[in-house]
Design a protein around this nucleic acid. Structure first.
Ligand code: FES
Ligand code: FES
Lengths: 145, 145
DNA sequence: ATAATTAAAGACAAAGTTATCTTTAATTCC
DNA sequence: GGAATTAAAGATAACTTTGTCTTTAATTAT
């Protein structure tokens, strides 16, 4: 569904929301290990998330690292997709028509639109923080054993 | 969600199911124009669909072309995904965990699993022919105007 | 047989994705 | 100020995806 980059972005931000704060920043080594992702590639991704879209913050130097502000933690998960430039996946036609709409629907549209609505709702209604909270409870995981 | 190749495969097979038969084969030119896809690339894709998985048939020479048998038209849409090697998209974890399961669920699993079930059901229960029938009725489209 | 038609097969190329590694810059600690 | 630490920036490379073009092979019509 999503690119590797976006999968890592989702896992990394949820991990950051759970473990980091302005007072406690995390190094790329810890993050990549925690979410089982390639270190340098993950660094690039987090770097890009600190840019235009303000979802992740960072500072260099000793005791520096990546973290999320309390405000950023309350963003919907969809803001990660937006920042990664993959938000259109939720909106696009499942058969690849240029436009997904009721005006010129593809043969799968009628059935797909209700699924699409739920997908959009899932990514819009849940905040990064809400998903992170469940890891704390130990009921869900951010990597396989 | 799917690759361009799979999108073209879905559109092409639905078009073939609607317009072709063993007695009336379609040339690659007509197919690519009808579904608004790159001609040579689409040829490659159809070629691959005539291989291992028997979803599309073809014959060379005058009055040759691509077609689908009545049996193939009754295959579930999912068989296209299978033939294109993208079936795992329906099964995989939305956050990229190696395994999507109740045993080690990711933070989105609980909400996503119900959507996933509907997605799988959509591709499993609808046949290629059923989707093609709606184009005939003029209520849905296989390309944009 | 020969020519025409059509898909199959293969070589190739441009672009995008997924990574890695090195150098630079910012920050802190001493 | 100098050394250590950490992310930023940049170069590079392997691989995949998307696409084109040319040659070959099969089939049909004359
Ligand atoms: S038009 Fe294809 S899913 Fe909406
Ligand atoms: S484990 Fe992530 S969607 Fe099921």
């Amino acid at each position: 569904m999503f690119s590797k980059a976006t999968e890592y972005a989702l896992r990394a931000t949820i991990y950051l929301a759970q473990k980091s704060s302005e007072a406690h920043k995390l190094g790329i080594e810890e993050i990549a290990t925690a979410i089982d992702s390639p270190r340098s590639f993950t660094a690039k991704i987090l770097q890009s998330l600190t840019k235009d879209n303000r979802v992740v913050s960072s500072v260099r130097g000793p005791h520096g690292g990546f973290y999320m502000s309390e405000k950023a933690k309350k963003l919907p998960v969809r803001s990660i997709l937006l920042a990664m430039g993959e938000d259109q996946i939720l909106e696009k036609c499942v058969m690849g028509l240029k436009l997904c709409s009721e005006i010129e629907p593809c043969p799968m549209h009628a059935q797909y639109k209700v699924i699409k609505k739920q997908l959009i709702n899932l990514f819009t209604s849940k905040t990064i923080q809400q998903l992170a909270a469940e890891i704390q409870e130990g009921v869900v995981f951010i990597k396989n054993k």
